[in-house]
Design a protein around this nucleic acid. Structure first.
Lengths: 209, 209
DNA sequence: CCCTCCTACGTACGCCGTACGTCGCAGGGA
DNA sequence: TCCCTGCGACGTACGGCGTACGTAGGAGGG
């Protein structure tokens, strides 16, 4: 695939893994394939990485580290939270195949804490501190994780939730669903994300008062 | 593993898959192993199921179908939403290994619609209808998906988010995080779930007014 | 000059999903 | 009764996988 006279490095290997993950998803990563892409023998990778699981972890960390801190010009804590949430969404959309990876992993290291710290700063701005702030942050993380999983990670082969892969459903038994069947089948992710985001912010506001 | 004189059936195969998933997770499922557990030849399974992916889908549907409708004795829409959310959480906790499976799949069929319908009924009770109700439901689903993923699907080998798998982090750079490091490392899932749930309900209440 | 150590690599084992061919049996005409 | 057809069960085989293990070669220090 490439010349690659330069020697094998953990960095080069992780890079290749990240590229492959972004291009074809985690399930496409194999040691043999990675090695081939680097023009190296399969087993040579094991001189730099103990096993595949760790390699994937490293790739996840690398992607997380690429996350840019958001920027916003406002004193309103709400604007900060909005900007932060949108930045996370951007990350998810830029790396859709990697997002599931990040989502099911406990992040740590510098990159993880950078995000946590800036989230805590926002809640601090809003007047939430200590245990409460942690709770808020986690609720927010949960919401983000959930929406973005739904936006980015659910199988897109089907047009919508109303289509059943193995046989149709008799909608007569579900009148309310039938009434909104059009909406159930359609996803406007931008609009949904903002709607949920404002909902969360409204909840925080209410908690403040 | 068992006598199993009775003939192979799609039902029996899916049952075995569900049991295996619940016991050891999706990644433990293999056609050979499933067949062995059923006392049958590997390839015999293919007479009843086109391939492994479909088999896993069928298992996911089966698990979803087992979900009991929640019960609650109240006229308050908030209580209904609470009960519904807690029922979903129960499902996730009873089938932790299967939950990730359900989460990354677009559900359809009867079972999926039963849940959707009862959620819509609750939002209807709260005064939300049509498009708004769908948006609310999706926000709620996102939150549930997110918290429960965090509760049930993140790797439990590590004690908490503060522990880094590959090297420690210098906390001096993260003063706010350092201040709540104890809370960051500890998870009280019951309390967190209820906290987030009330947050969501508060948001809905506010939207009503 | 030799010894040590590190990296690269080939081979091999035990898994995996599944395409394909065969065999045996049950059931229905003739 | 015999035979044919169809279907379920199964064995074999192929191409993939992760990785344990052994080896070979070269670089650097004694």
């Amino acid at each position: 695939m490439s010349a690659s006279r330069e020697p094998l490095t953990r960095d080069r290997i992780v890079d290749a893994a990240v590229r492959l993950i972004e291009r074809e998803g985690v399930e496409a990563v194999s040691m043999r394939r990675l090695a081939a892409e680097l023009g190296a023998g399969t087993m040579s990778l094991y001189n730099h990485v103990p096993n595949k699981a760790v390699l994937v972890d490293l790739a996840a960390e690398r992607i997380m580290a690429e996350a840019q801190p958001y920027e916003v010009d406002s004193d309103d804590w709400r604007d900060h939270i909005r900007a932060h949430a949108r930045a996370v969404r951007e990350l998810a959309r830029r790396h859709p195949r990697a997002f599931v990876l990040l989502a099911t992993r406990r992040l740590s290291s510098e990159a993880g804490f950078r995000t946590i710290e800036s989230a805590l700063a926002n809640f601090d701005r809003a007047g939430f501190r200590g245990e409460i702030a942690v709770g808020m942050m986690r609720a927010m993380v949960s919401y983000l994780l959930g929406t973005l999983m739904r936006e980015v990670a659910t199988s897109p082969e089907l047009g919508g939730i109303a289509l059943s892969p193995y046989g149709a459903v008799d909608m007569a038994a579900f009148p309310l669903s039938a009434g909104v069947l059009d909406q159930l089948g359609v996803y406007d992710h931008d609009q949904e994300f903002e709607f949920g985001l404002e909902l969360m912010i409204a909840a925080l506001e209410r908690y403040r008062g």
